[in-house]
Amino acid sequence: MNEDKSNDIFIFPKWTWVLRPAVAIGAAGGLLYAAVVVTFGFSPWATDVGYAPVQPVPYSHALHVGQLGMDCRYCHSAVETTAHAAVPPTQTCMNCHSMIRAASEKLIPVRESYATGMPVEWVKVHDLPDYVYFNHSAHVRRGVGCVSCHGRIDTMEVVTQVEPLSMGWCLRCHREPERHLRPLEFVTQLDWVPGEDQLALGRRLREQNDINPPQDCSTCHR
């Protein structure tokens, strides 16, 4: 009834044996792909590490902090008392630059701002999502150095984000603050290195100052 009258008979070519290894390789490749995607989620490409926007004024932290030795708090004056470290007003710049390099072309936007009263539009480098509430004073006053989050600002011509600033990154420190604690007097000293084992120092400081960073959601998300 179903005799095939034609002489042709369909068969798969012999090379189709590759299907089996191909399936196996495909399955392995799929797993690898998943692993790669997950790894990518942790990588600097997925976070903003390396972000270094061009600022309206070519302000050099390397010069001001690294060479001239200015303290962070001279400009970021609110860092010890409020949530925000504060970007300095133009007046702060003019404290010096009304005298020093008062005619520099690089400082035109600063002088314009000073004249018009409109602030310089600095670009925020270390920008957290709006649903994250970070308090500078809570960290600085417990002995977490600026360098822990911002890196060696004193060596940067252009400020660059060096840490992922991701939730996991925050959590690691909240779980093990001893890795980053330092004596309060060295908080703004970016090149400070502990004279002893950081962990030992950190544990001692943690004990002394009763530092137990909360890991509740509401610590950062409100």
Binding site: F42, S166, M167, W169
Partner: peptide
């Protein structure tokens, strides 16, 4: 349950 940078 996918590992992620939130550690969640």
């Amino acid at each position: 349950p996918i590992p992620n940078q939130m550690l969640m």
